[in-house]
Structures are given as structure tokens and as C-alpha cells.
Amino acid sequence: MTSLTDLREVVDVVVGVDTHVLTHSAAAVAAHTGGVLGEVTVEATAEGYAQLIEFADSHGMLRAWAIEGTGGHGAGLARHLEQHEEVVVELDRPERARRRNGAKSDPLDAIRAAREAVARSRLGTPRAAGDRQALSVLLAARRSAVEAGTDAQRQVFSLVIAAPEPLRARFRSQKLPEMLTTAAALRVHTSWDGETVATVTVLRSLARRAHALADEAAAHEKAILAIVRSWRPDLLDQPGIGPIVAATVLCAWSHPGRIHSEAAFAMLAGVAPIPANSGQVTTRHRLNRHGDRQLNRALHTIVLSRIRYDDRTRDYVARRTSEGKTRREIKRCLKRYI
């Protein structure tokens, strides 16, 4: 399916689906004319998915599905269709300005999805399940644990700064990790006033929460490393790539054939320069702020690591600096190279 450039060459009908939490709206559109053949709304359940296939059967067997949100609200439907060996094209959620005259409804969005799939020169396929989905889930859980743990650490630090002096003295000259250990071991004394008791209770709770979240994040990272080692251990041999960066790259790439070229992967990562030419100016480019920002962040991490530890990268930075490039421009060049 990834080699196709025009759905009209292989199907008679495109079924567009606008997905939601409780319901999915679908519209069958003739691939050659764009005419609407039928519409239906079903519940987002196994029974509803079966009704959608029956609806599609009534309009033609040579068909493809154009679905919004295959990794979210449409994940269940995408898996169901995959089990039935249906052809599925993945679409992004539409921007409001692109909706005709601002019109918005589920059936209209389903029709728009089908017609957009017919008009596309490149067809996107849903991200793979299996190891890729496992990595995605683990990355999300780890990211949540790290962010929540960081918040708890900040709160501990702020409370220590504003704590009553007898309590604050216990933390004097300590770094944050030591503060967390001290706070987690605090005990309440009956002779303390209400403010001190409350501060100690909250400090202990926050410190223990930070430790628990750190342990949780470490457990997720261990599971991520095991999957990466079993799937693509060669990534870990590259300078600047650890298990989290490797997992992020694999989640964006997903499976062979999803990304049709190296340049397309650069565009997905938001590191492909965007031409900004006008008139006689033909060498100007604009910073690309689109694409998968987690993938872009992973490439940025690789760049920072290589600038610090890789001799070849440091030599490159020195050479481009002598040519007049700024530090930021050099990093953009390295991200595109990587």
C-alpha cells in the first residue's frame, strides 16, 4: 500500500471515518467522482465496527478506509479493520481554517476525510502495533512519571526555603537529592506548632512521592531498553543514542515502508529546511517548526551529546564556526544530518 500514489487506481470507494470517544461517523465516497454514496454513525464498539464493515460491503468490495486518529479514538477501529485485512489510510485531524466556510459536523468531516485521501499523492499508513505500541505506552508512562517527579522535587525545594527556621536548619547546605532523603525520613513531634507539623507532613509526602516516581520511571526505562535491544540493538551502538532516544525514533518510524524516503523522515522530524524564497532571492530557508516534536527533541539530544563527546562532531562544529555559522545554525545542520 505504501507504494501507491493514487487511490483511484486501485479502489472504487473510499470510506472516510470521523472518530470520537463514543461514536464513529462514516461516509462512503466514490473514488473517481467524489460523490457521496452513503453515511452512517455507529457506536465505538466491536458491534459498531462490524456495522461499519457491513455498510462498506453495501457500497463496493474494492475499497479503502480513510481514518482520523488511528492512534487515539480510532485505534480500536483500525485494529479491527487490520484483522479483516482492510486497506487503511491514516489522516491527521483537520485544521479549522481548512474546513469549508467553517462548517463542522461529524458526517461532513467523514466526507472530507475520504476526499482528502483520494486527493493525496502520498498515502500514510497507521503506525504498527506490537513492539512499537509497547514502546509508545512505556514512553508515555515514563514521561508522565518524570514530569510529576520533577514537580514534586520543585515543591520540596520551595517548601524548604520557606520552612520555619528549626526545620530549615536540617536542610542547610544540602543538594536536592540529599534534601529528598532528609525530607522522606522526617518525623512529626508533638511539641511542634501547627505550621511546622503541616510543613513536615507535606515535605515527607512529596519526598516519598518523588522517590516512588523515580523508581517507576527507572522501571519503565528498563522495560524500554529490553524492547529496543530485542528489536533494533544497532541503534544503541550509535553515538549519542540511549534507550529513550532510540525508542522515540522507533515510535516515529514504526515499520518498514511507512516513511517513503529519508527526506520524508526529516520532514516528519521537523528538521527539513523550508524554502522561503521570493523574487530573485532563491537561497533563503525558514526554520521548520512542524512535525513530530518528540522526534525533534530526540535528535536534539543526540546533537548535544555528540557535540560534547564525539571528536568528529566537535571538529565539524569548529569548521562551520570558522565559516561564520552560528551555534544554533550548526545544531540545525547536525539534526538534519542525523
Rank of each mutant, 00 (worst) to 15 (best):
L22F: 03
G270D: 01
A75E: 05
V11C: 15
R112I: 06
R286T: 02
V13Q: 05
R143V: 04
M267N: 12
S305M: 01
A163L: 03
S254G: 06
T201W: 02
A247K: 07
Y309Q: 10
D109C: 05
S121F: 02
P177M: 00
N101E: 08
G194M: 01
K104M: 03
E95T: 10
A46D: 12
E116P: 07
Q51M: 09
E43P: 06
A185N: 07
L180S: 04
E262A: 15
V42T: 08
A78G: 03
A223K: 14
V303M: 08
P107V: 08
E329G: 15
A31M: 07
A219L: 09
I274W: 01
A117K: 05
D131H: 07
V29M: 10
I161R: 08
T196S: 11
E329R: 11
T70W: 01
R284I: 07
E39C: 13
R79M: 05
S205N: 07
T19M: 12
I338F: 08
R100N: 09
T201Q: 13
A103W: 01
R336K: 14
A219G: 14
L203S: 06
Y337N: 11
P94R: 03
E178M: 12
A163T: 01
G38C: 04
H255V: 12
V317T: 06
E147H: 09
I338K: 06
V146L: 06
A148G: 11
A272E: 06
V17G: 07
R232A: 10
A272D: 08
A183Q: 00
I338S: 07
H211S: 13
L4E: 03
R327G: 15
Q174D: 05
G71N: 14
L167H: 06
E95S: 14
A210S: 13
G130Q: 02
A214P: 07
A134S: 15
H260A: 15
T199V: 06
L167I: 09
Y337D: 09
R297G: 13
S158D: 03
A198V: 08
G72N: 06
R293P: 13
L334E: 01
H211Q: 15
A114M: 04
A75W: 01
H285A: 14
T5N: 14
L4D: 04
L236V: 09
R314A: 12
Q155W: 00
D18N: 02
S322W: 00
F157V: 05
A263D: 11
T283I: 09
V200F: 03
P177K: 00
V156E: 00
K335M: 12
A75D: 05
V21Q: 12
P164D: 00
V88C: 13
R232I: 01
R306T: 03
T41A: 10
R293K: 15
T182Y: 01
P126N: 08
L268K: 04
L225F: 04
